[in-house]
Amino acid sequence: MMITILKCTFEDARALQTISVETFIETFQEQNSPEHLNAYLDKAYSLNQLKHELANRSSQFFFVYVGQEVAGYLKVNTDEAQSEAMGEEALEVERIYVKKKFQKHGLGKHLMNKAMEIAQEQKKKKIWLGVWEENENAIAFYQKKGFLQSGSHSFFMGDDEQVDLIMTKVLS
């Protein structure tokens, strides 16, 4: 299995939209109403929104490929692009998603390692993320990677308010 991680460019916006919508639906459709899910998808993953995010110098997207197929992606934020004010010594992993058919093959680990590499290159002191309190697989993965819960915040799926745990890892 040949695994490659490549940085997304502005020209990747449509492919980014496709993988974003597909993996988000796979991850959350069973626990959320179609109305709430679609409202979120329309807002968060519209082509205009993704182009806006791709143009932000404080955000970076990466595709993980298995062979020639996009199997998942990563989004990291620094500075003002972070979804919470965590300061300039922090890097946020805002999105890390892998298609269902590619899960349990270590791709999440490859993407998280990429985020750690970026944090170290930029001399960040901590890396953090938000994860839905009911996403037990993701929480277990992050704990295994050394993240600890450091807070929580609201996340809106349409107009359904949910709780994301904030998990942080201090870098040495």
Rank of each mutant, 00 (worst) to 15 (best):
E117P: 02
A13C: 13
Q60E: 08
M116W: 08
N48W: 10
K51F: 01
N38T: 09
K144M: 10
R57M: 11
E92S: 07
L50R: 08
A55D: 15
E22A: 07
G146K: 07
L74C: 04
E11S: 13
F10R: 15
R95A: 11
N56D: 09
F62W: 09
L165D: 00
E88Q: 10
Q82E: 08
K75S: 01
S58N: 12
A15Y: 01
I19G: 03
G146P: 06
N38K: 03
I96L: 10
L91G: 06
R57C: 11
G67R: 09
H52F: 14
Y142M: 12
A140Y: 13
V93C: 07
V66R: 00
M86A: 07
D164A: 00
I96C: 04
G158F: 00
H153R: 13
D12Q: 06
G67N: 03
Q162Y: 03
S150H: 06
A15I: 12
I139A: 12
E11L: 11
E84H: 14
F63G: 00
H110S: 12
K144S: 03
F147I: 08
K99D: 10
G158K: 11
G146H: 13
Y65V: 00
K126W: 11
K123P: 00
E30I: 03
E94H: 06
Q120G: 00
K75C: 05
F24G: 08
H153Q: 13
N32A: 08
S20N: 01
T168E: 01
V70C: 00
F62Y: 14
Q17V: 09
E161G: 00
Q60V: 02
A71S: 02
I5G: 05
F62A: 00
V21S: 02
M167A: 13
N32V: 10
